[in-house]
Amino acid sequence: MKHNKHILIISDPGLNSVLSGFTAMPGNMQAYFASDEERAIEMANNQHFDLAVIDNTNNYIDNKKLSVVLPILLPDIELVAYKGESLTELKEEIQKVFDFQKYQRIKRMLVLDSSSREDINKLPPFSSN
């Protein structure tokens, strides 16, 4: 069963017509808007988000503060910076992030699923990379 992906968009939808297009998200994605960093922090403190899109074109949003605070509140959150690209390009970038997360989960499962009897008592090799 797939769970809905919750996307926090930090932007003023009245000022940014491209990001306001996120109100109609495809499939299992739901978008939530925060018009400034204080509201975004409050929302992240009260709700789980899988990804946050930070509007770097809005000078009133402190993206450095958000880049520090959001991962503290939500350690698994992915941050995407909006730099003025089209809505289609941004949606593709978001999909790439979710695809990468899915591939990482599959990779972890494959590493943990050893079919060899001799490897059953060994831990997978560790890499600091």
Rank of each mutant, 00 (worst) to 15 (best):
L66H: 04
E38N: 12
D12P: 09
Y60C: 11
P71I: 11
L87G: 03
N63T: 15
I77Q: 08
E38L: 13
K64F: 12
L70N: 01
G21H: 00
R39T: 15
L51S: 01
N45F: 02
N58K: 12
T88G: 07
E78K: 11
G14V: 13
V69F: 01
A40I: 14
L79A: 01
M43G: 03
I61D: 02
E38V: 14
V53R: 06
A81N: 08
F33C: 13
H48C: 09
G84W: 01
D55A: 13
Y32L: 11
A31Y: 02
I41Q: 10
G27P: 12
F22S: 05
S67F: 00
N59F: 14
M43D: 08
A52T: 08
P26S: 06
L51E: 01
S86G: 04
E37H: 10
E78R: 10
K64Q: 09
V80S: 08
K83I: 11
N59S: 15
L15M: 15
N56M: 13
I77D: 06
N46F: 05
A44D: 02
I77P: 03
L51A: 06
N28Y: 15
V69H: 00
S67Y: 03
N59D: 15
K83N: 06
S17T: 15
E37F: 04
A34R: 05
N28V: 14
Y82I: 09
V68R: 12
D50Y: 08
I72Y: 02
T57E: 06
P26A: 00
M25L: 09
P26V: 05
V68S: 11
G14Y: 00
V69N: 00
D36N: 11
T57N: 06
G21M: 04
Q30P: 09
N59A: 15
I41Y: 04
I41A: 10
V68I: 15
L19P: 03
M43F: 06
T88Q: 02
N63E: 10
P75S: 06
S17G: 13
S17D: 13
N59T: 15
D55P: 12
K64H: 10
Y32M: 12
Y32R: 11
S67V: 09
G21L: 06
I54N: 06
D55S: 12
S20W: 01
T88E: 00
G27A: 13
E85D: 05
D50R: 11
G27N: 12
S67Q: 07
L70F: 07
Y82C: 03
N59V: 15
L74G: 03
V80Y: 00
S86C: 03
N45S: 12
S11Q: 00
G14N: 09
N56K: 13
N56E: 10
E37M: 07
I41D: 07
A44H: 03
G14W: 04
Y60K: 10
L70C: 04
D12E: 08
V18L: 04
V68N: 11
L70M: 01
G21D: 01
E42L: 14
G14D: 08
Q30G: 12
E38P: 04
E37P: 09
I72W: 02
D12I: 14
A44N: 02
A52K: 07
T23K: 07
M29V: 14
H48K: 10
M43R: 04
L66Y: 03
S67W: 02
I61N: 02
P75Y: 04
M29T: 14
L74E: 03
P26T: 00
Y82K: 05
S20P: 02
F33V: 15
P71T: 12
I41G: 09
D55Q: 11
N46I: 12
P13E: 05
A52F: 07
Y82T: 07
P13G: 10
